[in-house]
Design a protein around this nucleic acid. Structure first.
Length: 103
DNA sequence: CCGTTGACTCTTT
DNA sequence: AAAAGAGCCAACG
């Protein structure tokens, strides 16, 4: 046996859950933590996110510092992040590197 | 099984 | 600096 007990998507959700409040992460960091380059697959996994309230998918943003996309609307995502302590400059995150959580 | 799609990222123009 | 193209991986039809 000794196979991957967790599927690719589950790994993404597990890592996302590990992100502390007031911090954010990027798809690239997630993919890098998974030892893969499936940046898009990570986004796809979060989009399907079956653990909606359990996995803080809104804490995942683009490596560019933009909020990226969100199943409920990027506006909602930004609003949620603001409540978590993340500030925004127009459509980009302020102190992006300071609130960026790395694995 | 092959082609398309997607909440991405990097490189080149 | 901004825009376009190429690359990458998993899920779906």
């Amino acid at each position: 046996m000794a196979k991957k007990t967790l599927n690719f998507n589950e790994k993404v959700w597990e890592l996302t859950k590990k992100i502390p409040k007031g911090k954010v992460s990027t798809y690239k960091e997630l993919a890098h933590a998974l030892k893969t380059r499936a940046y898009r697959a990570v986004g796809n996994a979060l989009n399907k996110n079956p653990h909606a309230p359990i996995v803080p998918c809104h804490r995942i943003v683009l490596s560019n510092g933009s909020v990226g996309g969100f199943a409920h609307g990027s506006k909602k995502k930004m609003n949620l992040l603001k409540k978590e302590g993340i500030n925004f400059e127009k459509e980009n995150i302020q102190n992006f590197e300071k609130v960026l959580y790395k694995f």
